[in-house]
Nucleic acid binder design. Structure first.
Lengths: 223, 223
DNA sequence: GTCTATATTATGATAGAC
DNA sequence: GTCTATCATAATATAGAC
C-alpha cells in the first residue's frame, strides 16, 4: 500500500468551526483572487492534516479547481507553504512593532500593549499561526532560514520590552531571557487550542495574558 | 517530480545535539532491543522532519537495517507513531499522577511539585514530547481519540490542583480554567526550543516554571 | 487560465530466499 | 529475523488542447 489517509477533505474543512479564522484578510493585495483563495484553502488543509499529508489536489479542490490549476498560480507546493509562513511571521511582527506601541513610554503599559496585541493577533489568525508554528519543517533550508530571521527579530523585540522595565525599575529583577521565553510560549501555544467560537475573543485573551505577563514581572516578588 | 526533500538523514540525526534526550529509557521493557532501537530512530526522524516526511527506510537506516526489517517488528508505520505518542502521554501523566505528589497536603507545595515534575519530564524527554505535540495529525482517528483521552485526564489533574488552592484560600480567586491552560502552555511549549545541552537542566527549568506558576496564583494580586 | 491526460518518482508494504 | 527484490499506489509536476 502507498500512503494517505487524509482524515479531512477540503469540503469538511471549509465548514469546520475550529478552522474559522481571519486568514482571508491576511494575503498580499497584489495577489489575485484565485491565488488568495488557494492560500486560504492551503492554510486549512495544512492546519488540519499537516503539510506533507496535504496534496496539491486537496488544495485545488478547496477552491473548486482541477489539480493542475494550482501550478498556474504557484510554482510549487513548497512555495505555497512559504508564502503562508512568511506572511504570517511578517504580520505577527507588525502587530507589535508599530508606532502606536513604540510610542508608549511607561514600561508596564508598553509590555501590556505588546503582549495583548501579539496574543490577540495569534488568536485572530490562529489557523495561519498554527501552520507558522507546526509546519516549519516543510520549508526548504533557505526559506526556513529566512523565517528564522523574522522569528529572531520578534523575540528580540519582546526581550527589549522586558529588559527595559527591569532596567528602569518598573519590573522585578527577573531573568529576562527566561521570562521572555515564557511570555512568548503563552501567546504561541494558543494555536494548539484556540477557537474563534470559544469563550474568549482575541482581545479578551490578549488582555488576560497581558495580566499574567505583568504578574510574572511584578516588583516585590523578585526572582 | 514526486516528493521528499528530507533535509536530515538518519545519520545526521544520530549525532545532532538538539535531538539528544532520554527517549531510549522510555520504551516498554517487554519490547526487544531492536524494537526499542527502531522507536528511538523513529522519534528522531519524526521530530526533525515530521511523520509524513519520514519514510520507513529512514527509520530502518537509523538502526542499520534494511527497509523491510521494520515490518518484522511493527505492523505499520502508523503503529510506530502510535506507540511513541501513547507511551509519551502515559509517562507524562505518570510524572505527576503519583503517590509522592498526591501525598503533598499544602496546595502551593502540591502545585509546585506538579509543575516542576511535568516541566522537567517534558524537558528530559523533549524529543519524544515534541512528537507527542506536533505529530498527532499522523494518527488514525481511533488512536487519536485514545490519546485525547489521556490528555483530558492530564488536564483535569492540573485543573484540580489549581481549583484546590483557590478553594482553600491558598491562591487568589483566579479563573481556574484559563490559568490552568496557561500553566500547561508553559510546560508544553518548551518542546519547540529546549535542548539538553542548553543553560537549564530539566530540574532547573522545572523549578523556574513552578515559581512562575505560583506567581500567577499568588494571593493579593487577584483577578 | 482552466481542463484532461500523463510522465516520473518514491513510498508503504509484501514475497520469498537464506 | 534479516536480506534483496518488487508490487501497487499515489503524489508532484508537466504537456498540450481549448
Amino acid at each position: 500500500m502507498a500512503r494517505r489517509q487524509a482524515r479531512f477533505t477540503a469540503q469538511d474543512l471549509a465548514d469546520d468551526p475550529r478552522l474559522r479564522d481571519h486568514s482571508p484578510d491576511l494575503w498580499r493585495e497584489d495577489l489575485g483572487e484565485v491565488q488568495r483563495g488557494l492560500l486560504t484553502s492551503a492554510v486549512r488543509c495544512f492546519a488540519a492534516n499537516g503539510y506533507h499529508a496535504t496534496t496539491t489536489r486537496d488544495i485545488a479542490e478547496g477552491v473548486g479547481l482541477s489539480p493542475a490549476a494550482l501550478y498556474v498560480h504557484f510554482p510549487s507546493k513548497e512555495l505555497v507553504l512559504y508564502e503562508i509562513i512568511r506572511v504570517g511571521h511578517e504580520r505577527a511582527l507588525e502587530s507589535v512593532d508599530k508606532p502606536s506601541i513604540l510610542a508608549v513610554e511607561d514600561s508596564s503599559d508598553r509590555l501590556r500593549a505588546i503582549i495583548s496585541a501579539y496574543t490577540a493577533w495569534h488568536a485572530r489568525h490562529h489557523v495561519v499561526a498554527r501552520v507558522c508554528q507546526m509546519e516549519l519543517a516543510g520549508l526548504t533550508a533557505e526559506h526556513y532560514d529566512e523565517v528564522l530571521e523574522l522569528r529572531h527579530r520578534t523575540n528580540e523585540f519582546f526581550r527589549d520590552a522586558v529588559a527595559r522595565g527591569v532596567a528602569d525599575g518598573s519590573f522585578a529583577k527577573v531573568d529576562v531571557k527566561r521570562v521572555t521565553r515564557a511570555m512568548l510560549s503563552l501567546s504561541i501555544d494558543l494555536v494548539r487550542w484556540y477557537r474563534l467560537d470559544g469563550e474568549d475573543s482575541p482581545e479578551q485573551l490578549g488582555e488576560f495574558y497581558a495580566d499574567l505577563a505583568l504578574k510574572l514581572v511584578a516588583p516585590g516578588s523578585a526572582g
